[in-house]
């Protein structure tokens, strides 16, 4: 090895000392790299085959289980969904049978809204962001307008007692628009199924729910009537400015004739006395002998969307609970 090497140069016809053989050195290194890689690959594969880590075992069994049970879960889900579909159909039919009208869109859509949000796709999120921006803008504008309005129309302190005398309270605590079983105007009589003028609104609530006086005033009728027709047990209260409110089909009447009541006082409980088919409150507002739509007075405890929903529900022709 240590002996110097020479090569024969045919041009000069001489033996010349050979320098570092770069070419073969590169080739050698390349070969080394190739073979190294090959060995690495073979070793890696062998290790892969022979060595099994805990996590690997766990993952493998988990994957197997996931694949194996997926079909079964899907099958179960399918059967449950079928049952649910039939249930939903029955439920819709029941709703129609009870109220003689379809369910309001805004109530049934609440579930569809959830469905949309479940798929959090990027295009949705941009859309939602865009809408959120717009809503914020609109809200900001609304709040400034609101501020201007409130500045202009803020009731004076001396007006307050007068304002409180309007029957603006909702007679049942915890009222929601969906509790409005039947609105004001042309509705279906539950007994003969014919259209008639419904002079008040029907608020559904459980038997025994407290009924509140919607404004302060004097009780001008506290009647107990066992006849299974008409108003049953009912209360009539006279308020200021020619307003009267009537609360019918009560279970209990807890005020006396000519008693003074304040706004929010509990005057009785909800029942189904008189010509009623279910526990509910028949609520009327009478202004100078003419009937008003009581739903229009419910401004205190509801927000904008609820009021809209209430108006929409009130316009529908449904079976009244009488």
């Amino acid at each position: 090895m240590s002996t110097p090497k020479y090569y024969y140069n045919p041009k000069t016809l001489k033996y010349e000392p050979a320098g570092v053989p770069w070419g073969s050195l590169i080739l050698y290194v390349c070969g080394l790299a190739c073979f190294g890689l090959l060995f690495f690959w073979v070793l890696l594969m062998t290790q892969n085959k022979l060595v099994e880590t805990d996590r690997e075992r766990k993952l493998r069994s988990e994957n197997l289980a996931l694949v194996a049970h997926k079909g079964r879960v899907q099958q179960e889900l399918g059967s449950v969904e079928l049952k649910l579909a039939s249930l939903a159909e029955r439920e819709t039919a029941l709703h129609k049978r009870i109220f003689l009208n379809e369910r309001s869109q805004s109530i049934s859509q609440q579930t569809h809204g959830k469905e949309l949000l479940e798929y959090e796709l990027p295009e949705y999120s941009t859309l939602i962001d865009e809408l959120a921006g717009k809503t914020e803008l609109a809200l900001a504008r609304a709040s400034t307008t609101n501020y201007e309005f409130s500045r202009l129309f803020w009731p004076k302190k001396r007006d307050m007692p007068d304002l409180q005398q309007y029957p603006t309270l909702i007679p049942v605590a915890g009222f929601e628009p969906s509790k409005l079983a039947c609105g004001f105007g042309n509705q279906i009589n539950p007994f003969n199924k014919r259209l008639y003028q419904h002079d008040g609104i029907d608020i559904v609530a459980e038997r025994g729910t407290a009924v509140r006086a919607t404004a302060s005033g004097r009780v001008v009728a506290a009647v107990r009537n066992e006849t299974p027709a008409g108003f049953g047990h009912y209360i009539e209260i006279e308020h200021a400015n020619g307003y009267r409110t009537r609360y019918a089909h009560l279970d209990e009447v807890s005020v006396r004739y000519y008693q003074n009541v304040k706004q929010g006082d509990i005057i009785g409980t909800i029942g189904t006395s008189g010509g009623s088919i279910s526990p509910h409150l028949h609520y009327e507002i009478i202004h100078n002998q003419s009937r008003m739509n009581p739903a229009l007075f419910f401004i205190e405890e509801l927000n904008e969307s609820e009021l809209q929903q209430l108006a929409e529900l009130g316009r529908k022709t449904k079976q009244s609970l009488d």
């Binding site: 080394l32 790299a33 090959l38 060995f39 690495f40 690959w41 890696l44 690997e56």
Partner: peptide, 26 residues
């Protein structure tokens, strides 16, 4: 020498791989 060297490279690579990367199957 060639085989030994390439084997060394292979083993070195494997050790490096095992230290820095997770298992292939995993």
């Amino acid at each position: 020498l060639f085989v030994g060297l390439s084997l060394l490279i292979g083993i070195g690579g494997l050790v490096y791989y095992d230290l820095h990367y997770p298992d292939l199957d995993e």
